[in-house]
């Protein structure tokens, strides 16, 4: 429930940043599933090694929307190398914490970013960096069990 959501979570839920899609995105990542109640889809535009633009679409609870919004803010305008180091903990910290039952949303946010980066490498025909490997298994118990 809303109880336990920080001001920052509430702000990012009420006014999510970078909502939408990117035409001709260089990388698209989608994780989660509707049966579990959250899906995140992240679109990246990459110029050189910089993430020049990013958008997201999310089906999910308040925390899912807020973590998507925060994760996109944290990688926008940043070099790929930095985005590869994004962790769910960093997203949680940037939001001033999440209730324990909502931590899996931050895991999804991290995984959505990494899935989008993996897609970028694949499209380019380049080897996918190890950091992208932790994709959502689709099994929610993996995060919240």
């Amino acid at each position: 429930m809303a109880m336990g959501y920080s001001e920052k979570v509430r702000d990012h839920f009420a006014n999510p940043r970078n909502v939408g899609k990117l035409e001709n995105a260089d990388g698209i990542g989608e994780v989660g599933n509707a049966v579990c109640g959250d899906i995140m889809k992240i679109y990246l535009k990459i110029d050189g090694d910089i993430i020049s633009d990013v958008r997201f679409n999310t089906f999910g609870c308040g925390a899912a929307i807020a973590t998507s919004s925060m994760a996109t803010e944290m990688i926008k305008g940043k070099p790929i190398s930095e985005a590869l180091k994004l962790t769910n903990h960093a997203v949680v910290e940037a939001l001033d914490g999440l209730p324990p039952a909502k931590l899996h949303c931050s895991v999804l946010a991290e995984e959505a970013v990494k899935a989008a980066l993996a897609d970028y490498y694949q499209k380019k025909g380049l080897p996918v960096p190890e950091e992208c490997a932790a994709a959502c298994s689709g099994d929610c118990a993996h995060c919240c069990g």
């Binding site: 429930m1 809303a2 839920f13 009420a14 579990c36 109640g37 959250d38 089906f59 999910g60 609870c61 308040g62 925390a63 899912a64 929307i65 039952a101 909502k102």
Partner: peptide, 25 residues
């Protein structure tokens, strides 16, 4: 196509108190 908790939080921002049967709640 949408999830209940985010729906009820958006309603809350409009001053309406509701509830949902989503997993999140």
């Amino acid at each position: 196509g949408i999830e209940g908790e985010s729906l009820l939080l958006r309603l809350d921002l409009e001053g309406i108190c509701a509830s949902s049967g989503s997993a999140c709640t």
